[in-house]
C-alpha cells in the first residue's frame, strides 16, 4: 500500500532574488514509499538526498510538484503537525537532537508536545526505550552516552511519538563501526517486528544492501532504483557517477572482467564466499 508519494518535486535553496542561476537541490523526483517498506536512499554529498528527506515530514515544502503523506499534501498547513506525527525524522548529529538532560525526559519530549496524558507518556517512553535497548540507561545524562547509544535514544524519541514511518538522514555518519551496527540492527528490528516504514538516507553501501529497495540519487535526480541486487548489479553505471558499490560486488565485477564465471553479483560476504567456492570447483 502506498504511504508516501513524491510527485515530480523540485526544490531550490536559492532565493527568488538571487542573481546566480538557480540550481535545484531536488530536481524532478518522483518516488513512492509503501507501508512497511525499508527503503535506502544513497548518493554522494550534495546529491539532494537530505533535502528530499526534509520534504517527507513537511520541514521543507516543494517549489513545484507535491508530496503526499498518507493522503495528505505536505503543503497543506493544517496538516503539518499530523504529518510530523506520522513521519518522524532522525537527523545526523545525535548530540543536537537530544533536548533534555535525562534520557527518559528527552524521549518524553515528543509525546509531551502532542499533549498526551502523563501515564500514557510514561508507557510510551518505557516501550520506546525498550525497543531500542536503552531502557537501563533511562536515568543517564545524554552527554555521557556513546554516539550509537545517543542515536538510539534519538530514535526512541521519535518512536514515542508513535509514527508510522521513520526517516533517517545519515544517522550513522558520525558513528564508529560499533555504533553503526547498533543503529542498523535497531532499524531492522523496528521494521520487521513493528512494521514501521523506514526510509534510510545513507552513504554506506553495506547499509543499503540490507534494505528492501535502494534508490540511487545523483544531482537531485533519481538515477536508478530497485532491489539491492538489481541496483548493485549495475556496477558500471554507479562507477560512472562516482558511487561506491559494496566491496563484494566490486570484487565479483573485477573477477568477471578477468573472465571468471560468476552467476551473480554477491552483496554480502557469505554470499560472496559461497559463490567463489562454487566457481573454484
Amino acid at each position: 500500500m502506498k504511504f508516501i508519494s513524491i510527485e515530480n518535486v523540485c526544490f531550490s535553496y536559492a532565493e527568488e532574488t538571487d542573481p546566480q542561476p538557480h540550481v535545484n537541490a531536488v530536481d524532478g523526483v518522483t518516488l513512492t514509499v509503501d507501508k512497511g517498506e525499508f527503503v535506502a536512499v544513497i548518493g554522494h554529498n550534495g546529491c539532494g538526498k537530505s533535502t528530499l528527506a526534509k520534504h517527507l515530514n513537511a520541514m521543507l515544502l516543494p517549489d513545484s510538484g507535491r508530496v503526499i503523506v498518507d493522503g495528505d499534501d505536505t503543503a497543506d498547513e493544517e496538516k503539518t503537525w499530523d504529518i510530523r506525527e506520522k513521519v518522524g525524522l532522525v537527523l545526523q548529529n545525535p548530540d543536537n537532537q537530544l533536548v533534555a538532560g535525562i534520557v527518559e525526559e528527552d524521549v518524553a519530549f515528543g509525546p509531551e508536545n502532542l499533549g498526551v496524558e502523563p501515564d500514557e507518556i510514561r508507557r510510551r517512553v518505557d516501550e520506546a526505550l525498550k525497543a531500542v535497548d536503552m531502557y537501563e540507561y533511562r536515568g543517564h545524562a545524554p552527554h555521557k552516552l556513546s554516539g550509537g547509544q545517543k542515536q538510539r535514544v534519538a530514535i526512541a524519541g521519535i518512536l514515542a511519538i508513535q509514527p508510522q514511518c521513520i526517516v533517517l538522514d545519515e544517522p550513522t555518519a558520525m558513528l564508529d563501526p560499533n555504533g553503526r551496527d547498533e543503529v542498523m540492527r535497531t532499524l531492522q528490528k523496528l521494521n520487521r517486528e513493528q512494521g514501521i516504514t523506514v526510509v534510510l538516507i545513507t552513504h554506506y553501501m553495506d547499509e543499503a544492501v540490507k534494505a528492501d529497495r535502494v534508490v540511487v540519487m545523483d544531482n537531485g535526480k533519481v538515477l536508478t532504483q530497485g532491489t539491492p541486487q538489481e541496483v548493485f548489479r549495475q556496477v558500471e553505471l554507479l562507477k560512472k557517477h562516482r558511487l561506491d558499490v559494496p566491496q563484494t560486488a566490486e570484487l565479483a565485477y573485477r573477477l568477471r572482467g578477468c573472465g571468471v564465471d560468476l552467476p551473480d553479483i554477491p552483496l554480502t560476504e557469505d554470499e560472496c564466499i559461497k559463490m567463489l567456492e562454487e566457481a573454484m570447483k
Partner: peptide, 14 residues
C-alpha cells in the same frame, strides 16, 4: 520541530 514542538500551549508533562 520534527518532534512536534510548537511552543508551550497544549503541552503536557510526563
Amino acid at each position: 520541530e520534527c518532534r512536534c514542538y510548537r511552543g508551550g500551549a497544549g503541552r503536557t508533562r510526563m
